[in-house]
Computed example of a mutant assay.
Amino acid sequence: MQLYNKLSAKERAALIDDAGTDRLTLSFYKYAHIGNTEIFRNHLFINWNELDVLGRIYVANEGINGQLSVPAPNFNAFKEHLDSITFLENVRLNIAREQDVKSFLKLKVKVRKKIVADGLNDDTFDVTNKGVHVDAEKFNQLIEDPDTILVDMRNHYESEIGHFKGAITPDVDTFRDSLDIIEEDLKEHKEDKNLVMYCTGGIRCEKASAYYKHKGFKKVFQLEGGIIEYARQVEEKGLDNKYLGKNFVFDHRRSERISDDIISNCHQCGKPCDTHVNCANEACHLLFIQCPECAAKMDNCCSVECKDINSLPYEEQKALRKGKGNSNKIFKKGRSEVLKFKG
């Protein structure tokens, strides 16, 4: 019985090419009590591996968080399996706006302590006492209200390429970093302002809204389904799109466009650009924004040093990496002294 992925990304990509089948990229989450996470994890892997599901799924005692792709012909079978799990029946599926058959190249189902690394002690507050969920139409109305404070609950490299008009975008590296900063900055408005939050698909706001209510904020709202669902509703209902730029996503696509606005700059030359790439030097792999001209000039690298290393024969590069972990820069997405025009 296979319980783990056995194919490399390259092998899987070849199989996808050979199959010639459309795939659907989607995401979902659900907070629920899961007793034996390892058994549940294995159950998901066995069934989804049979359906050729690929993606990254986190399972914890508090619930499940999944980003994945499914062959289009297998979608109904996948949905039936989800519905067979009591707490996942009719769970909202956020379907990606821009599809890519290679958005994921492996099936990874991992047991974690939490489905989102929030750093919170959930025993200290009622995580079920969440904010009011609002759809795109109500969200648009709320953010036009002068008594509303709109907050982006994502990290700096996400909001840099796209965010809602007028939103506060904390310059943070992690979700946990933003929680205390936002509370401190808005402490004078716990009683009198609407605190409206949004994130990619809604999961971060689920916990954050309960946390802020615990901290004394009286009027807490969250965008139901996040940016992904907002974009779908705006298109479906013909609503005014208040979002500027791209929505960062955590798969091989890296982003999907929500509006034609380009609000960020190439980190190397400063010209308007919102294309995230990873440095081609595998010892670096820094995530940053790079325009096509700089990509050609720098051989898809973030610095001259990385360009020189990347030009070496593969075996020499491998020898240089031997015994060394990846630079900490890999965890500081978009932050490096070599990036002259980081926003």
Rank of each mutant, 00 (worst) to 15 (best):
G63I: 01
G63Y: 00
G63C: 02
G66K: 01
G66C: 15
Q67L: 11
L68V: 10
L68P: 07
V70A: 11
P73V: 06
A77W: 00
A77C: 09
A77T: 09
K79S: 13
E80V: 08
L82N: 05
D83I: 10
D83C: 11
D83G: 10
S84K: 08
I85S: 01
I85T: 03
F87N: 04
N90H: 14
N90A: 03
N90E: 11
V91N: 00
V91W: 07
R92H: 14
L93E: 03
N94M: 14
R97E: 11
R97A: 13
E98C: 10
E98T: 14
E98D: 14
D100K: 13
V101R: 13
K102V: 10
S103W: 00
F104G: 09
L105I: 08
L107T: 10
K110H: 03
K114D: 14
I115C: 05
V116P: 09
V116W: 05
A117R: 12
A117G: 09
G119A: 14
G119F: 11
L120R: 14
N121A: 10
D122E: 10
D126M: 00
V127I: 15
V127P: 02
N129C: 01
N129S: 02
V132W: 06
H133E: 09
V134Q: 01
D135L: 10
A136T: 03
A136M: 12
E137P: 02
E137Y: 07
K138T: 14
L142V: 08
L142H: 11
I143Q: 01
E144Y: 06
P146A: 12
P146S: 10
P146V: 07
P146E: 05
D147N: 15
D147G: 15
D147W: 00
T148R: 01
I149P: 01
I149S: 01
I149W: 04
I149R: 13
